[in-house]
Design a protein around this nucleic acid. Structure first.
Lengths: 209, 209
DNA sequence: CAAGGATTGAACTCACGAGTTCAGTTTACG
DNA sequence: CGTAAACTGAACTCGTGAGTTCAATCCTTG
């Protein structure tokens, strides 16, 4: 209902698809179901509109990621399953259309909006990694993982789990089937655990290989 | 000396900095030290110029990466050192200004040039990973690594080594000092080896931790 | 050296899109 | 209710940049 939100949402879609320069304010207005002067009335000019749309998009994306990380159980019955769920959820956040738009724009418009992009990067990526590092550190504290540097491990977890999925989806061009996501995520978790899982303590079942 | 090459080089710089839509053919021409009609004489229009510039840039980048991978010694005296050298060299390829331009453009212009970007991705990324997978498989064959899926391992090696460097350089905005590259690369190799190194066979020195 | 193509600079056309204007209409709110 | 703000549609200005034109010049190659 709120027109401002609708405009920002439409702006993120159009900017995300076409980039700042090629995006047309007319299209944003009509997608938002609003007249062009309204857009200018609320946001002043195209650059401000871009800035606000990207800020909002990045904020929403960060909240989703944050919720996913906060939901990690640090005393899971099954560590591998817990990490796979986490991996899937993170990949889900990143491969949503709006999440991709935010990432794409941060990369493609960093020359036009260097301060904005730097803000978002330190405000979101850094905090995401810190949050995940905290969870991993807790898992290490209870002896499930062996970590020298939780931040580095957090960053590597994300790289392992998200990178191939992004690449094979052609950065969001192609929708992926269930298995095309499952395989890489499982393998990313495998590698992560092979590197960081604590050696099986008493007897029971350890890691596969 | 060849004007065509100079034009393509200038085009990659300018397109890489500004994106397709915002890049000005006039600037490309003047950077190449050439008159605007010459550009149109050789390449017809802006889209063709873009296509050829990106193809050429991706080709050169791929050749450099390829050379780095081909140079890997599959019977190294020191596996860790060999992989660190490889990691550094790969990061070097990826953080050159023109390499970054190629990556940025593949991401930002995939909606405008979907076929081109798909071509490059399967032509280069896939072949790069295959080449690296071959080397890793050889290392596995001689008992230095234990790999279930060499392709997956190759992709993960690249993700581990390159991801954080790219992120912390703000995708090429900021130049990195020697240590800012060394640390992440070493840690990436650490994790890779922790996951895939064969358990130390006889006695001698194994992996640190 | 002569012919043909490539190159140049400068001026040009033209489409397109940011941002504005305005007169009229809707909505919010005391 | 009544008034002020927000909103609308349509038409407008205006800068900018893709692509062209052309007459003059520069190679290149036989």
């Amino acid at each position: 209902m709120d027109k401002g939100e609708r405009i920002l949402g439409a702006a993120l879609e159009v900017f995300g698809r076409d980039g700042f320069a090629a995006a047309k304010v007319d299209e944003i207005a009509s997608r938002a179901g609003v007249a062009k002067p309204t857009v200018y009335h609320r946001f002043g000019d195209k650059e401000t509109l871009f800035t606000e749309a990207l800020r909002r998009g990045a904020g929403l994306a960060h909240e989703r990621v944050r919720a996913v990380i906060d939901a990690v159980d640090v005393r899971p019955a099954d560590l591998r399953a817990e990490l796979e769920v986490l991996g899937h959820a993170l990949v889900g956040c990143v491969s949503r259309e709006d999440g991709l738009a935010v990432s794409r724009l941060q990369i493609s418009e960093q020359n036009r909006f260097p301060e904005l992009v730097r803000d978002l990067r330190i405000g979101n990526r850094t905090r995401t990694i810190d949050a995940l590092a905290g969870k991993l550190a807790q898992l290490a504290a209870t002896g499930r993982l062996v970590l020298r540097d939780p931040s580095r491990a957090a960053q590597q977890f994300i790289a392992l789990v998200a990178d191939e999925v992004l690449a094979s989806s052609e950065y969001g061009q192609r929708a992926l089937s269930r298995e095309e996501v499952d395989g890489p995520v499982r393998d990313g978790v495998d590698t992560f655990l092979a590197a960081f899982a604590a050696p099986a303590p008493p007897a029971g079942e350890g890691q596969p290989a």
